[in-house]
Amino acid sequence: MNTVIALWMRGLKAFVRNKTGLIFSLIFPFFFVYVFGAIFKNDYIDNPISYMLSGVIITTVFESSLNLASSTVDDMVSGFMKEVLVSPAKRLAVAVGQLLSAATVSTLQGILILFIGLFIGIKFTTWITPVLILFAMICVGMVFSGVGLFLATKVRSGQTFQIIKTAVTMPLTFLSGAYIPLAMLPNLLKYIAYVNPMTYATAFFRMIVLEKTSLTNAELVKEGLAIDINGFIVTPVLSLIIILLIGLVFIILSTNSFVKTDFSRLNRSSNDASALWG
């Protein structure tokens, strides 16, 4: 348990200390809000700023949890993970610590954007909304921390991993409806969006932020908050269940994979690594 807390604190400290990283993590979301908000101003959406911000917040939580959990790879390359793994600390506790710290930091980033969003257009009519938002962000943070850690245990080289990560996050972000409404996508991309877990996370999260919980299915589809797959309506609640299931699978897979991974096989970037690892 102490190991979990220690690693969790480590993640939080690193986040607070990285001031430049923090500023840039705030600049990009608002840049996207501005650009895409201007492009997709249309009649379907009555509150474009809130609409865009909700998408941007959830993709930020998604990207940053994935990045942070998979930064376990950096810990392996830098050697820190070796210190952890040669200690009597339980590997399961290490995995949970990494997951929790990634989920927490990404949620904090989401909260920061939301907080700024309050000044530029997001409005809540009930106190339940922020509570639900927090809950949704933590869920999405945990889910994609699981995915990130899982990826981290599967790589063998730090450099290839950067490429894989971009190749995974980019399409998942842009084909989720967060920036570009699904209705505007060509059919092929639409089908890809249907199998993208981020599509469901975005729909669910957006419904909460826009406070559209009381709409009928048809209205939800019209606003892009429910997904209509050839007549089958995926409601926001169903979306949440899908997300949580995916998350559960990946959290189990990633902890299991982390406990079993033979980290001595990881190809460290420095040249004397081969000597080090025998």
Binding site: K13, R17, S78, A273
Partner: peptide, 16 residues
């Protein structure tokens, strides 16, 4: 164990 390459967490202080 003191390994050949550093296994310290560079972002933290010595004390941490």
């Amino acid at each position: 164990v003191v390994f050949q390459d550093s296994t310290l967490d560079a972002k933290m202080t010595i004390e941490e």
